[in-house]
Every structure is written in structure tokens, then in C-alpha cells.
Amino acid sequence: MSDAKNRLPQRVLIVIPAYHEEETIREVVQGVHRHVPGATVVVVNDGSTDGTEAAAREAGAVVLTLPFNLGIGAAMQTGYRYADEEGFDIAIQVDGDGQHLPSEIPILLEELGRGTDLAIGARFLGRGDYDPPVLRKLGIRFFSFAVSTLVGRRFHDTTSGFRAANRRVVESFSRYYPYDYPEPEAILILSRAGFAVREVPARIQEREGGRSSITLRKSVYYLLKVFLALAVGRFRAPPD
């Protein structure tokens, strides 16, 4: 894939939330710079106590350091608030652990070019051979089923954190973004507000370092929390 054609006239921000990712963050930031030249990379250091911040800075990223660990949702929102304040046209979420491939970012950008407001890089759509452990696959299926039912349109990978948002979504997320386990809920909120949320097939890699934020112990809580958020989300008063 040629990099030259990815030099877009728009200002693109890549948001990488990172909590204890000193092993992988440098490579992720450099990979993004390689594949999306001209994009600004911001690493949201979610209260890491290891060398995440220094590694990200060395790799040439802008670093937003939260004073303590807020969790993925609030860390992501910090990135969206930065994108909003600094006037970026597009914000793209990429995980700091290396499971999202910077080479796949242009696919998301192309989807935004087709009028999509939030493009989600989805597994299980034929591209890539990512095969998660049985339990996680079940969880992914469950949330995709729940979100699909609530939204009324088929989603395959609602827990994917590989996403690109246009300016309107950036503004919306900087005002309100679900926290804790935000991904499925974010789809629901945007869909209800009339935004065009679409999935595009993307390759997702096995994680290079660190562990999933969702351990076996936490998955029951995750299941209940997201299910409640989704169920309540249908009736929740709109933010503001």
C-alpha cells in the first residue's frame, strides 16, 4: 500500500491509549508514523508507572499523562478532547499493545471518505485470521448480538477498539464518552443519535505485549456492566 496517497488534506490525529505498554508503545508509534505520515500521534498515558511515557515521547508522540489510572474509556475521551480542542478533522483509536496494525489505518480513513461517521475495524469479516480464545470469542459474539438487536442492524465486532471518527463524532465524544468498557456502548449511543456507524474488515494481530484488560476474573463484571449499560442506554436521557 503506497503511503503517498495517504497524505490527506485533513488533519488526522491518532489516539493511542496506553497503560503499562513500555514494551510495545515505541513500535506502535513508529509504525503509525510510517504508515500515516503527516498524522499527529498522541499517546494517552493512563497513569502508567513504567517507562510508557518516556518511550512514547522518544518515538515522537505527543503525550497526555493522566495523574492516575482512569480506565480505557476516560483515557480515550482525553484523546477525543485533545482532538476537539486542537481542531483535528479525524481521530483514530489504535491500541498501544500492538494488536492493531498501523498498516490497516488507511482502510478506516477510506471508509470515512465514504460518508461514514465512525468506522470500526472489525475482525471476522474475512480479512485476517485472528482467532481469539473461546471465552473471548463468546463474549465478542454476545455483545455483537446485543448491540445488533438494540440498534437493529448487524454488527460483528462491537468490542473492537480500532476505530476512526470524523469531526462530528470527535465533538460528540469529547462531550460524552462512556467509560469503563466503552466500545459497545459507544456504537449504541452514536447509532441512536443518527450517526453512520459502519464496520470494515480489518486484520487484527495477536497481542505483542501486555495482557488484555479483560481477564477471566473481570469478564463476568464486564458482561454485566456492558449489558446493563446497553439496556439502560436505550432509555437513558441524552447527555447535557
Binding site: L64, T65, L66, P67, L70, A74, Q77, T78, R81, Y82
Partner: peptide
């Protein structure tokens, strides 16, 4: 608290 922590990160940068 969350909003304040985000403000701190943004302002510090």
C-alpha cells in the same frame, strides 16, 4: 474527578 484528571493531562501538555 475524571474530568479534572483529563483537564490536568490536557493543560500539562
Amino acid at each position: 474527578n475524571r474530568e479534572l484528571a483529563q483537564d490536568v493531562a490536557l493543560l500539562r501538555e
